[in-house]
Write a protein that binds this DNA or RNA. Structure first.
Lengths: 230, 230
DNA sequence: AAAGATTCATACTGGTCGGTATGTTGATGG
DNA sequence: CCATCAACATACCGACCAGTATGAATCTTT
């Protein structure tokens, strides 16, 4: 019998992925040092190059197997929820509240990788694009669903709103890196929450104007208390 | 008399700054190669190190003397305008329309630098932070001004809205890099324009839920067509 | 248990990059 | 016209880093 298996290729691979993810999160992909990954993981270079053909291949694997699930887990609650606006607001609140100083300082790995790698590597670009597409499609589906259930205004263009929401989140997290505090992120998120509130369907509203007008007139506004801070 | 001055230190410095900016825009700061900058500028390494003490100092100078004016020029129209919402919408339209494929592919230099350098270099972080602070303060001032002129809803929290707007712009430009087309940026910008429209003060509206300001109506307004799309 | 493949370990290589040492040329003041 | 300094130019150095060659240890299969 063997007390502990001396060879655990799957575990080695997983350790490598996680340490590579952290190093990439701190330094970006190009500045990520293989030696640093090897040191933090306790794996040798021979093992690394047995599991991954190159640094680039390792990076691709991190995107597919770490970043992608990470992002998907974040917005899943919104897609699964009965009321996508309530769910989205909750996610936003969680996002700012649970975020450690470390996460504030280093930002969102997904956003970081897009910014760094999309212009210089097609493999990264394509993989990151599909993650973004899926994320957006999930929000679009949630909003369409919300429109059918009459919890989201019918005149909202779901594609545009989804892109706008994702952009504001990633932009807020990204820009927060330039500040010491999380003030910017929190402030931006309050703006986002206000925007999300404005997407709620109002009780007596006639639906479906969509591409005709920006809505806004006639309807008399303002969900109010649930969101009013102060 | 001299036909052409053989020594033009100011011009040499400026050329260096511009070429460094372009190289940094393409590759990021850390991956920017001094040799590439020297080749594209036709300047030698000796000249570079005469004008700048190190690559980092060169980077700082690019931030202060190229990136900062670049950003300030972008939002100045909003601050100077009579109606900041109209101006902001115009700027957004310009931003997407005039943007070349190159700019789509490589994103916003300011955002790129924050994402890349803020976590790893305090000098960059501080300089970029002040640019962001100024940008945000400019929008806040414009919105407060707009609130006094009754073109912006009185219940809007200017700080939050400004952060949110900036985040959505930079996020949209950043994420657009992962797509081949500018579709994502345009879509996100349509979402932003819709949001900006929602900030307009409405004629007969009793204002101020937010900080409980009464705000007498009577002021009329609302341009409308100037901005309505489709 | 032998053979063969998988999994890992070590030492080394070629290349790139930021930075420096040192030399040369042009401008400038006396 | 000479001295001095600013403004360049060239050659070189050490560090780091991705990748490889080679071999050893372990597991699997028969």
């Amino acid at each position: 019998m063997k007390a502990v298996a001396k060879r655990q290729p799957d575990r080695t691979r997983q350790t490598l992925l996680e340490c590579a993810f952290e190093e990439m999160h701190r330094s970006g992909f190009r500045a990520a040092s293989l030696d640093a990954i090897l040191e933090s993981s306790g794996v040798t270079k021979g093992a690394l190059y047995h599991h991954f053909g190159s640094k680039t291949q390792l990076g691709y694997a991190v995107v597919e197997e770490v970043v992608r699930p990470w992002i998907e887990a974040a917005w899943r609650p919104v897609v699964d929820a009965d009321n996508c606006i309530d769910a989205a607001i909750t996610v936003c609140r969680e996002l700012t509240r649970t975020r450690s100083a470390h996460a504030i300082e280093y930002g969102c790995p997904f956003n970081n990788l897009i910014n760094e790698m999309s212009p210089v590597d097609e493999g990264f670009r394509k993989r990151l694009q599909t993650i973004l597409d899926d994320w957006r499609a999930g929000i679009v589906a949630a909003m369409r669903n919300g429109q059918e259930r009459r919890v989201v205004r019918a005149d909202v263009a779901a594609e545009d709103a989804a892109a706008f929401i994702i952009a504001s989140i990633e932009g807020g997290v990204g820009l927060a890196k330039s500040k010491r505090s999380r003030e910017f992120l929190e402030s931006s998120m309050r703006g986002l929450v206000d925007y999300l509130e404005s997407l709620r369907a109002r009780p007596g509203q006639a639906a479906a104007v969509r591409h005709a007008r920006p809505a806004q007139d006639g309807a008399v506004l303002a969900p109010t208390f649930k969101t009013s801070r102060s």
